[in-house]
């Protein structure tokens, strides 16, 4: 009688969802994304100013990005060590070399919102001297 009763309990259908496989799958996905995420990151971290603007439309080539950090240091998205600040003269040198060989290259300034306005204008003047007819200012869509 007692044993019978017990058996009845064990045979009762399980009421809750077995979450172990879900956790398992999630962990596997997490590992995959943890591995791939650092590979996707690149560039210098800069707080972009917020403004409504369009994306670069239908440009064939990757734009040349000159970044300016809050402390006024310049970076460019070329070369082995892109996170190494470079003097302005070196950056304009690189820009003019690229534009001489590929005049259609688009140049974008990736400036921190806190950078003094004068600094950005100086940079733009130098870029224009290096041969960029017009310069894009990178922005972030407003939150």
């Amino acid at each position: 009688m007692r044993g019978n009763f017990r058996r009845k309990v064990t045979k009762k259908p399980m009421a809750e969802i077995n979450v172990v496989p879900y956790i398992d799958v999630m962990l596997v996905l997490l590992v995959v994304f943890m591995v791939t995420a650092p590979l996707l990151m690149q560039g210098v971290k800069v707080d972009l100013p917020q403004a409504p603007s369009g994306p670069i439309d239908n440009k064939d080539d990757e734009p040349l990005i000159v970044s300016v950090k809050k402390d006024g240091s310049y970076y460019i998205n070329l070369g082995r060590d892109q996170k190494q600040p470079k003097p302005l003269s070196e950056i304009t040198g690189i820009v003019s070399k690229v534009l001489r060989n590929k005049p259609s290259t688009f140049v974008v300034v990736w400036g921190d919102a806190q950078v003094p306005y004068g600094k950005v204008v100086t940079l733009m003047t130098e870029l224009q001297k290096a041969g960029a007819p017009s310069v894009g200012m990178a922005t972030e869509p407003p939150r």
Binding site: L64, G79, V98, N101, K102, T105
Partner: peptide, 11 residues
């Protein structure tokens, strides 16, 4: 060799 640099020059 850093291919990206060369590509930027159109090489």
């Amino acid at each position: 060799v850093f291919y990206r640099d060369w590509r930027a020059l159109g090489t």
